[in-house]
Design a protein around this nucleic acid. Structure first.
Lengths: 344, 344
DNA sequence: TTGTATGCGTTATCAC
DNA sequence: GTGATAACGCATACAA
C-alpha cells in the first residue's frame, strides 16, 4: 500500500481531505469541520492534526471557491504600475491580505482593447470584487459585472452612475489650495497641465484651479489650460505650448506627477530656470521630488489611506450585507511646500 | 418557468453550461466541446452561440481549474512595488497576459513573517507557477512548493540549489563596467553602497566592483564598502559613513536606485556637491534620474527583457514538458552616462 | 459527432 | 459531534 512514489517529473497529486480522513480514521465531513473551526472531539482533532502534518495536506482553495462561490481574490484593474499606482498596489495588497484576500492584477496601459479584455478576464475569473481606477467607456462592461454580483470599488477616477463604492481624494479642494498658494506668492499667470478633462480626477483638479483663480477675481483663460493626457510626453508638450505663449505663465500646476516629469524635461530643454523663471507645483509626491534641486512642491495624496479605505469598505461589503448602501469616501490631500515655488 | 427574477441584492446565480445546453437543446458535453474549440455541427453551434449570448454565459474559471488542475494564474512574490518592481510587474503582467495568464500578487515588504505567510498562501491557492525575487531563508518553503509541483522562476535575486528557472541580469559584469568607468575618469577611491551581501544580486555587484578595482591594481579596501541594506535610509547611512572616512571616496557606486536616493539625500544634507565633490553612479534607472540636475549615471536593467524572458520560460515549461531542463537566462545591462560622474 | 455518466476537492445537509 | 452523501460547474472517457 505504499503510495509515496510520485510520478517523477510530473505533477504529483497532493493530499486531499479524503486522504486525511482515511488516515485519521474519521469521516471526511469531520475533517472539513475541523478545517473550518467547528468543534471537534479532542481525540479526533489530534488524529486529524497528525494526518495533516504527515500528509502535508493543504486545503485546495480552488475547490473551496467552487463550493462556496468565494475566492478571496480581488481583481485590480489599473492603467500602469508607475510610482503612484505601484505604491497604491503595495498598500492595498497589504491591507487586503490582513482580511485574507489577495489581488489579481490586470494592467491595461491605457489601451482600450486591453481594458475590455481585462474586464472579460475578470468576469470569467470569479473574483470576489473589483477595484479599479475608472475608465468612462468601460461603463457597460463594468455595469454587467456588477449585475453579475461582483462588488466594485472605484478609486482615483470615477465612472458616474455606477452602483459602486467610491474612495477618492479631494481633488478640487486640494487643487484649489495648490493654486491659491501660487496666487498667494504673487503669481497671476498660472498654467495648468491637465489630465484628460473627461476623467473626473482631471475635471476636479481643473475645477479647483478655476476656484482659486476666480476667488481672486482672475478670469480663467483657456489658453493657460493644456491637456497633457496624463503622460510624460503629453505633459512635456503641454508645458511647451504653455511656455511659448506670448505671455507665458510664471507658474505651472501639473495635475499629476507623470506630467510634471514632462514639464521638468521641458524646463530643462528650454533652459527655463526653476524657480527663478517659473514655479512648479505637482499633484502626487514622488520619491525624488524631495531630493530634486530645488525640491518640488506637491499635493501629496494619502495613498495608504486610500488603500486602507478600499480594504475597509470591501471588508464590510463582503463580510456583511452585500446590499448595504454604497459609500463614498473622500480623503484629504496635503500640500507640501518645497523649493520649486517662489514669489515672482 | 420564468426564472429570470434574481434575488434582489444578493449574488445572482449566473448561467452554467447546463443552462446553455438546455436552452440550445444539446447535451452539456456538446457545449463543453464547443467552448474548447472542438468541431461541432453547424446547427448546434448556432444554437449554442445564441444561448450563450442570451444567457450571458461566462465559463466559470474556478470549475475549470478544479477539473483541469490549471488555473492560468501565476503567483508573484515581491518585496515591494517601488519603481523597479512596479515596472517589472507591469511588463510581466502584460507579457503573461498574452499567454492567457494573470498575476496574483503578494507583497512582503522585506518582512520575514509576511514572506512565509505569502508562501503559505500560494501553496493553498493552487497557482500554475511562482515568480519571485529570491529570499534565502525561504529555501525550505519554496522547495516544498516545487515538490508540490509548482514551477518556480527566480528573478532579481537567486536562491542557490533550487530546481528552478532563472532570469537574471549580468550583475557582475555590469558593475565592473560601471566602476571601470569611474576609474577611467581618474577616480581612485570608489565607495560601494552595497545591498545585503548574502543576496546574490548584492554579491554579484560587489564582485564586479572588486573586479574593476583589481583590474587596475587597486586593492579592495573594506572600509569603502558599506551595506545600505537596499533601503533609502540604509543607503543614506552607508553613504554618510563613507563620506566621513578620513579619506572619503571621490566616487560612489550604489547597488540599487533606492539606496542612491539615500545617497543623494546625504550629499544634499552634507552640502557635498555632485559631481564637483563626488561622482555617483547607480544601479537601476529611475524616471527622474535623467531629469535630475546633473543627470545621474546609471546601470540600466533591461526590465522589459527580464519580464519577457520570464513569460517565455514559463510558457515553455507550462505548455510543454514540465520536466524540461532548468534554464538560466542572463540579460545584459546598459551603462547610461549622464552628468553625475566626472573626472576628478 | 453527440449524449451520458463520472469525478475533481470541498462544503453542507441530513439523519444518527 | 459524527458519518454518509449530494451538490458546485465543468471536462472527459465511453458508449451510442
Amino acid at each position: 500500500m505504499n503510495d509515496d512514489t510520485q510520478n517523477e517529473g510530473d505533477k504529483p497529486r497532493s493530499a486531499t481531505i479524503v486522504d486525511v480522513a482515511k488516515r485519521a480514521n474519521v469521516a471526511i465531513g469531520t475533517v472539513s469541520r475541523y478545517l473550518n473551526g467547528f468543534p471537534i472531539r479532542r481525540a479526533n482533532r489530534e488524529q486529524i492534526e497528525e494526518a495533516i502534518q504527515a500528509l502535508r495536506f493543504r486545503r485546495n482553495a480552488t475547490a473551496v471557491a467552487m463550493k462556496t462561490d468565494v475566492t478571496h481574490v480581488v481583481g485590480l484593474l489599473a492603467p500602469s504600475f508607475d510610482e503612484f499606482h505601484g505604491a497604491m498596489l503595495e498598500h492595498l495588497s497589504r491591507a487586503l491580505r490582513r482580511d485574507g484576500r489577495a489581488l489579481l492584477i490586470y494592467c491595461h496601459g491605457g489601451d482600450t482593447r486591453l481594458m475590455e479584455d481585462g474586464m472579460d478576464y475578470f468576469s470569467t475569473q470569479r473574483i470576489d470584487a473589483l477595484v479599479m481606477s475608472g475608465e468612462d467607456h468601460l461603463f457597460d462592461r463594468v455595469d454587467q459585472l456588477i449585475d453579475a454580483g461582483v462588488p466594485l470599488v472605484l478609486y482615483d477616477n470615477d465612472i458616474a452612475g455606477l452602483k459602486a463604492d467610491r474612495v477618492f481624494v479631494n481633488n478640487r479642494e486640494a487643487s484649489m489650495h495648490a493654486v491659491r498658494h501660487l496666487l498667494d506668492i504673487g503669481h497671476r499667470r498660472v498654467g495648468l497641465v491637465s489630465g484628460d478633462l473627461e476623467d473626473s480626477a482631471a475635471h476636479g483638479r481643473y475645477l479647483g484651479y478655476c476656484d482659486a483663480l476666480e476667488e481672486r477675481g482672475i478670469a480663467v483663460d483657456p489658453r493657460y489650460v493644456e491637456s497633457g493626457h496624463w503622460t510624460i510626453l503629453g505633459g512635456n508638450d503641454a508645458t511647451r505650448r504653455l511656455m511659448s505663449l506670448p505671455q507665458p505663465p510664471t507658474a505651472v500646476f501639473s495635475a499629476n506627477y507623470v506630467m510634471a516629469l514632462g514639464a521638468l524635461r521641458c524646463f530643462k530643454d528650454a533652459r527655463v530656470r526653476m524657480p527663478e523663471d517659473v514655479s512648479l507645483i505637482s499633484f502626487d509626491d514622488a520619491a525624488l521630488f524631495g531630493l530634486y534641486e530645488p525640491g518640488i512642491t506637491v499635493v501629496a495624496q494619502p495613498i495608504n489611506g486610500v488603500a486602507q479605505s478600499i480594504a475597509d469598505v470591501l471588508e464590510r461589503r463582503l463580510r456583511s450585507e452585500r446590499s448595504m448602501p454604497f459609500s463614498s469616501t473622500n480623503l484629504r490631500c496635503e500640500v507640501i511646500l518645497r523649493g520649486s515655488t517662489r514669489p515672482v
